[in-house]
């Protein structure tokens, strides 16, 4: 799966501009779906199987990005965020625009006395090498994503947009490996998750599933002096019980945990105080659905270098296949 993760994380497709990644995914899944369609918001919806339960498995395919709001008189591109950035990880980052231009993020106030303070995003800029708006390769509305290559550290992998391309890889791999399913399963690669979970709202309304599962990354509590959170990298698939905006259906949590235990798949119980996923939108679409979340533990979330553990990634595929193969009793 590593070459696939590399290919997906090295594709540039921020929220609202998912064309490139959708093309890559479509190419990967076209032989493994019974039906493929794209809805009004650009969600890529692939059905596999029929009968049994109607299940929606969602992984968002967008990534956080930057959009130029103006180019100042010296040629510096000022930007607004597409999604949430942590300012301290952005200064010095390189970005690539969808039009092919490159730039580096700089910040005002890098004087000696203020060096230790964090610059807010509106005090930052992208230097594209331009000296005026005239010779700037970018203009208002141009969109960029972080530019970092994928690195394989053996057991651990780092890349930009591991959030959520690693889950996209998991879905693709699941579609390939899932020989038969007793259910009507919709694999949905959603758009605009990083800008308040928008693609999942409409795709879930369109599908109206009985069960919804979001596959996403989750922050961990295992780095020096990190948040009080139990989830660690490499200790197994993270089964979501709660995040700040969604409480997983207890029936779904039990189903997942029992399946993991039976198949000897290592798992962790997740109560998260940060972030949310597509599951929250699936839960309340239409008359509602029973939802849950499976997360791949991830360090340095929303920075240019996000790290996951390859065992966790493979175990997520295993758990999904175990869940989808058999009859479901809740």
């Amino acid at each position: 799966m590593k070459p696939l993760i590399k290919k997906l994380t090295e594709t540039f497709s921020p929220s609202g501009y998912e064309n490139a990644i959708r093309e890559v995914i479509t190419d990967e899944i076209k032989d493994f779906a019974d039906e493929i369609r794209v809805d009004a918001l650009g969600n890529l919806i692939a059905r596999k199987g029929s009968g049994g339960k109607k299940i929606m498995i969602a992984a968002h395919m967008d990534e956080i990005g930057l959009i130029v709001n103006h180019v100042d008189e010296k040629g510096f591109a000022r930007f607004s965020p597409l999604g949430t950035f942590l300012p301290h990880t952005l200064v010095g980052a390189r970005v690539r625009f969808l039009n092919g231009a490159y730039g580096v993020v700089g910040a005002e106030y890098l004087k000696k006395e203020t060096q230790t303070k964090l610059a807010p995003l509106d005090k930052m800029f992208i230097d594209t090498g331009a000296t005026s708006p005239k010779d700037s390769p970018v203009k208002i509305g141009d969109v960029a994503a972080l530019e970092r290559p994928f690195h394989d550290l053996g057991k651990r992998l780092i890349a930009k947009s591991m959030d959520n391309r690693v889950s996209v890889a998991v879905l693709i791999e699941t579609m390939r490996k899932l020989k038969t399913t007793a259910h009507e399963v919709y694999f949905v690669f959603t758009t605009q998750e990083e800008v308040q979970v928008r693609g999942a709202i409409t795709s879930a309304f369109g599908i109206a599933p009985e069960i919804g599962i979001a596959i996403d990354i989750c922050p961990v509590g295992d780095t020096p002096d990190s948040a009080k959170k139990e989830v660690s990298l490499g200790k197994g698939v993270s089964i979501k019980i709660k995040d700040p905006l969604m409480i997983a259906d207890p029936r779904i949590v039990t189903w997942m945990i029992k399946a993991a235990e039976k198949a000897n798949i290592p798992y962790q119980r997740e109560v998260s105080t940060l972030g949310s996923t597509d599951a929250r939108a699936i839960q309340v679409a239409g008359a509602g659905a029973m939802v849950g979340g499976i997360s791949i533990p991830c360090r340095y979330v929303h920075s240019p270098s996000e790290m996951v553990d390859y065992d966790d990634v493979q175990n997520t595929v295993k758990l999904l296949i175990t869940l989808l193969e058999k009859k479901i009793e809740l």
Binding site: G221, K228, K229, E230, I241, K242, I247, V271, T273
Partner: peptide, 16 residues
């Protein structure tokens, strides 16, 4: 409240 972490004999919690 909901248990978010177990530290020895004590429990950390998050709010519901």
């Amino acid at each position: 409240l909901i248990v978010s972490k177990v530290s020895g004999e004590f429990l950390h919690v998050a709010n519901l």
